[in-house]
């Protein structure tokens, strides 16, 4: 009797978990009954070649971006040749060798002030990636909380919260960001706290970008999470937990949030490139990162401003733009791979 139950359950599960065979490859070597959903997702992810290559590229990019300043610093202490290397590649070092096309010394060429473009792209990457990830994290927190509360509480609160999302959806996003950035920016810069500390004075613009971009990117997340929570809330295991006396906070934390993990992580992977794009757009307008610092957006804007019909400094756009596009591509493939791995149906 017990055994029959067991075997029926296993066929049921293999029916439900039948999606891995969609990929058309051999079935997983591990028995699906013994593998957690997370591990199954990982198995599927590993078989998705573009996603794995993208993940590799992103790791490589991160390593180079983190290591490059360290390399420059170390080379500076290694005799005259090393010092020269450091000086040539210092992203803020102005020199007379302007507009040099890419060569052995300047891998990405030099810009209008004779600065090394490779170094500037690497230093710009720090900012662009940081804004992307922190902005996505901000949107994650707001979106998940908003959607989870709306979906779980339901009723009037739900419709009120979702009407707010609808209204924000109908405002042009870019206006919203610009107004938010300028408003908060001026308010913060006037505050005594920021004016007293040199650190905050310098970093306030970046901080604003984090908050501002996160604050406009949570809408879709809230909608997705709400839909998921709505369907999860009525499931039997949640009912069971509630009948055993679990409060809403515990149910949310223990049962709902872990179950929407896959959707959320997938959507985050697609939010990061969107925020990086926004940041580069704002920096392109001159609203984001301010001049001594660089991000991919400001670098591309500098390149665009040098376009003329007499001489073409293609490397000023091609390299920052190329790295930006490659990173966005990788993040998108990664997001697609995660979505397929977690087998998330698009709405």
């Amino acid at each position: 009797m017990n055994k029959a139950d067991e075997s029926r359950k296993s066929t049921d599960e293999s029916l439900n978990g039948g999606t891995p065979n969609l990929a058309g490859t051999r079935p997983s070597t591990l028995d699906p009954r013994l593998v957690s959903p997370g591990k199954q997702a990982w198995q599927r992810f590993k078989r998705n070649r573009p996603a794995v290559i993208s993940a590799g590229y992103l790791v490589l990019l991160l390593v180079v971006v983190v290591a490059w300043p360290a390399v420059l610093k170390i080379a500076g202490h290694c005799g005259p040749a090393g010092a020269a290397f450091t000086q040539i590649h210092d992203p803020d070092h102005l020199s007379n060798s302007q507009f040099i096309p890419p060569d052995a010394q300047h891998w990405f060429g030099t810009d209008v002030h004779g600065r090394d473009v490779f170094s500037r792209v690497m230093y710009g990457a720090q900012l662009s990636l940081l804004v992307g990830f922190v902005g996505a994290a901000v949107s994650l927190v707001i979106g998940v909380l908003w959607g989870a509360i709306a979906g779980y509480v339901g009723g009037r609160l739900d419709s009120a919260l979702m009407r707010i999302v609808d209204i924000l959806y109908s405002l042009p996003t870019i206006i919203f960001v610009i107004v938010l950035l300028t408003t908060l920016g001026t308010l913060l810069k006037q505050s005594a706290f920021v004016q007293q500390s040199a650190f905050w004075n310098r970093e306030v613009q970046i901080l604003l970008l984090f908050v501002g971009l996160g604050a406009v990117s949570w809408l879709t997340m809230a909608r997705i999470v709400r839909g998921q929570v709505l369907s999860l809330r009525t499931r039997a295991f949640v009912e069971a937990s509630r009948s055993l006396g679990a409060g809403p906070a515990r149910i949310l934390a223990r049962h709902i949030i872990p179950n929407i993990f896959g959707v959320v992580i997938t959507y985050i992977a697609l939010t990061v490139p969107a925020i990086i794009l926004y940041e580069s757009f704002l920096s392109y307008l001159g609203l984001g990162v301010q001049p001594p610092m660089a991000s991919w957006g400001t670098l591309i804007a500098e390149g665009v401003s040098q376009i003329n019909s007499i001489r073409i400094y293609w490397w000023l756009i091609a390299f920052p733009g190329g790295v930006l596009v490659a990173t966005l591509l990788a993040l998108n493939f990664l997001g697609d791979g995660l979505r397929d791995a977690w087998d998330i149906k698009s709405r």
């Binding site: 957006g297 665009v304 293609w314 756009i317 733009g321 596009v325 591509l329």
Partner: peptide, 17 residues
């Protein structure tokens, strides 16, 4: 996917050049 990833301010100068 490439088309989704190339922002207008990269594509436009590229096309112009």
């Amino acid at each position: 996917t490439l088309a989704v990833c190339v922002p207008g301010f990269v594509l436009a100068p590229f096309l112009v050049v």
